[in-house]
């Protein structure tokens, strides 16, 4: 198969690739900060002071990213992927978008329900989005943990699939998302 046979792009557009890696770094950092802060007495305060603004930044980015995706042309899936695999890949991507949108909202919502000031940095803080109710806080706090674990599980599935394609099937799946043109890295 040669590249001249088709006019379809081989890679995701640059904007999508940049957003993808930026967000991957932010989300992994958030998951790490989240599990570390609730287990640490000495780092709790410093970590949660980063957790809140970074989480809100993810909320902003996921909206930008979703809109950007709607207006972008995506490269076709590699021929090595069966239709089921494509369906699963697509569904898991949609699930990731949904989680990255809902999780920060749950974080914001639970702090609202507990009537904490939702400090981002300095004097900048968010308005509450839910009424004062400690029962609601407790339910959302559990949801925040459950969604974080689900997010981690989906990330692991996504990461495993990409590694499998790249290292075992060697179908250059990763080059679709590579920051460079992905051509130099012939094989892994």
């Amino acid at each position: 198969m040669s590249a001249t046979m088709t006019t379809e792009p081989r890679q995701f557009p640059v904007s999508m690739r940049v957003l993808h890696w930026l967000m991957a770094a932010m989300v992994l950092t958030m998951l790490g900060i989240g599990v570390a802060m609730v287990a640490s007495l000495s780092y709790y305060h410093r970590l949660i002071s980063i957790h809140r603004p970074l989480g809100i930044l993810i909320l902003i980015f996921v909206v930008i990213r979703f809109v950007n995706r709607r207006f972008s042309t995506m490269p076709p899936f590699p021929a090595t992927m069966s239709s089921q695999e494509r369906f699963i890949a697509h569904a898991s991507e949609m699930l990731l978008y949904a989680l990255l949108f809902v999780q920060p909202l749950v974080g914001w919502g639970m702090l609202s329900a507990a009537r904490y000031p939702i400090v981002l940095f300095g004097g900048l803080h968010l308005f509450p989005i839910l009424p004062h109710s400690v029962m609601l806080y407790a339910a959302l706090r559990k949801t925040h943990t459950a969604l974080a674990y689900l997010l981690f599980a989906v990330f692991i599935a996504h990461f495993s699939a990409v590694l499998f394609h790249t290292v075992v099937l060697r179908d250059r799946l990763l080059s679709r998302m590579a920051l460079g043109d992905g051509v130099g890295s012939k094989e892994y």
Binding site: S42, Y43, Y44, H45, A114, Y137, R141
Partner: peptide, 18 residues
């Protein structure tokens, strides 16, 4: 004590809230 208090009060609050 400060960061520890913040972390522990949050845990106590979360438990009693529910």
């Amino acid at each position: 004590l400060l960061s520890a208090r913040s972390a522990i009060y949050s845990k106590s609050f979360t438990r009693r809230a529910g």
